[in-house]
Amino acid sequence: MSEIDPCDWCEEVLQPYLDRDLDATDVQKVKHHLAECSWCEKRFTFESDFRRLVRQAVIEPMEPELKAKLAALRLEL
């Protein structure tokens, strides 16, 4: 069986790594690889900033009127 290319492996586990849903052994392997591979490190930085952008893009505070409407839905005592 041929050895998996470390950068291919890194791409495969990078999303769970960013989601903090990767096991501890693999987390260490990813960190180790990112420290020595600038090609993957660049992509890691981009992916991580990209997530922040997605999170910020749809954050739109709720209108105060809606909050009042929700509170009005409470059952009467």
């Binding site: 900033d49 952008l53 997605v54 910020q56 893009a57 749809v58």
Partner: peptide, 17 residues
């Protein structure tokens, strides 16, 4: 990388989503 990301606006992200 940061400059690359600058090309994406929040409107783009909302529209793509």
């Amino acid at each position: 990388e940061e400059r690359i990301l600058d090309r994406l606006s929040q409107d783009h992200v909302a529209e793509a989503l």
